[in-house]
Design a protein around this nucleic acid. Sequence first.
DNA 1: TATTGTTATACTCTATAACTATA
DNA 2: TATAGTTATAGAGTATAACAATA
Lengths: 159, 159
Amino acid sequence: MSSKALRLGAKSAQQSETSLDLRALQRTPGFMLRLAQLKFFEGFYEEFAALGLTPATYAIFVVIHDNPGVPPSSLASVLRLRLPNLIKILNELESSGFIKRNRSKSDRRAVELMLTPKGAKLIAEGARLTQPYNERMLAPLSEAEQRMLLDLLNRILPL
Amino acid sequence: MSSKALRLGAKSAQQSETSLDLRALQRTPGFMLRLAQLKFFEGFYEEFAALGLTPATYAIFVVIHDNPGVPPSSLASVLRLRLPNLIKILNELESSGFIKRNRSKSDRRAVELMLTPKGAKLIAEGARLTQPYNERMLAPLSEAEQRMLLDLLNRILPL
DNA sequence: TATTGTTATACTCTATAACTATA
DNA sequence: TATAGTTATAGAGTATAACAATA
């Protein structure tokens, strides 16, 4: 268990970020999770910019790919997006030709989401970037530690 | 290492969120970090609502408390906030009487941030809520696992 | 009447440009 | 000229309310 104290000098009125006492924040899981999420999102935009994917659209594509016919309401629920905000993204993805909406035959209110061939191709290209991206983000950790982090996150979440 | 597959039935056009295949997302650290951060922030607002603290103001108070005289630029840097956005929050905290700004004597452009007695009292009250809050958020993990999670997060971050 | 999807809209958070004052 | 702080403002993300179509 490492606990490097960043700050060694005495407190003074003139602080610079290289000599700040940040130990309290480092022991604050919520703050560290926010920093980690920022790191992953920034890294994502760097890695997937060429494909035009964002963290949100990537997750949407993955869920539709693994669950063809999933309705917008379920998608919004698992991705923790509000339905009206998801609808806006789905509208863009559909008008760009990546997904299509089918009306359910059994319940004509319901919508079934599917990837188009163009959408399937995009997510296949994205999948090839996923491993090197995660590897880069988690580089300081051993493979066992990377699995441990993922396992701990899964266990604190109600998924 | 648990890896409960959530989905057991066959894929069909009619999906509900209870039977979706989310295994790909569960193996995606960036997505799980986003969910974890959402959980912690929502829990924070529940726990600290009575004090009027937000995750951002809590972190600001902590850093000023541990580093009296810290300038806004350093604070923005460590909290990953843009300076103009931090300034707006500092304006509110100052006009509410929680912090005060001193002009540095050696460099009259520089500002030194301090807690007022009212601000010190607020963060002291907040500190008492911190442990039960983190305990509730991390309840599914043993104490050793909670330390492990925090350690892993610290090691992937450049703090 | 209740539910699914959708639109419109407001609010918060975040990002960029430009200005003031000091150095 | 460069830097610290500040203001103004635009943009992205997220929230609620209300409506249409269907059950």
